[in-house]
Amino acid sequence: MNIKLKIWRQENSKVKGKFIDYVLDNVSPGMSFLEMLDALNTKLIQEGGSPVAFEHDCREGICGSCGLYINGRPHGPGEKSTTCELHMRSFKDGDTIIVEPWRAKAFPVIRDLIVDRSGFDEILKAGGFISVNAGAAPEANSILVNKEVSEEAFDVATCIGCGACVAACKNASAMLFVSAKISQLAILPQGKVEAAQRVQAMVAKMDELGFGNCTNTYACEAECPKGIKVINIARMNREFFTAKVVSQKTT
């Protein structure tokens, strides 16, 4: 296949970026999207150019490092798949593909297609944990958890923190990500003890970092590679208001 690419190039966070056009021949349909970019980079290096910087690591859809805006969609055209799981058979010979970094104020560009997603860890730092020291845990089977509840917690816990939800949202809201973590810990009995403080601390941090609000477009759910549902946002809001009303410890 012959592929035309329009790729966002930006040397660092301080300078302006722009789209640059590339043409790549001999693309095989079996290549992954990132392997196609590897091939482009090999070509660029050999021609004395500067390779395109993009983030990646496990290349099997679980680490959450990769994340590109491809033809206007986070992670490209595949359903429930990360950028690294996307393959070139999803495109046709002669296609033009537009590749951009995540677009969100809270995710500034570091270089080319790499953005700074440390805001996510800042939110988790505020309360995305259960306070139990090593050595203090009770015997595992002393905490009984209903099987369905456990599976529900697992489903939200599969979030890989890639940021596609933020990139998909016109408001750059982080609510799907934050609600997934809050839900996991609010559903499980182990996490209920601190639930009220957790939701308040995490929501406050999310707002402080400049992530936008939710206006119910559901774009986040549509683009989430792990199929996290927006119902979690409703749960987070419920948790938040209950906590505000009930808790003495307002933040």
Binding site: A134, G135, A140, S150, Q190
Partner: peptide, 22 residues
Amino acid sequence: NATIDQLTAQGVPFAREYGGTL
């Protein structure tokens, strides 16, 4: 064994039996 206790207490959603045990 203590590792399983610790991870469970931290909210790791390990698979469960119908009775709620691991």
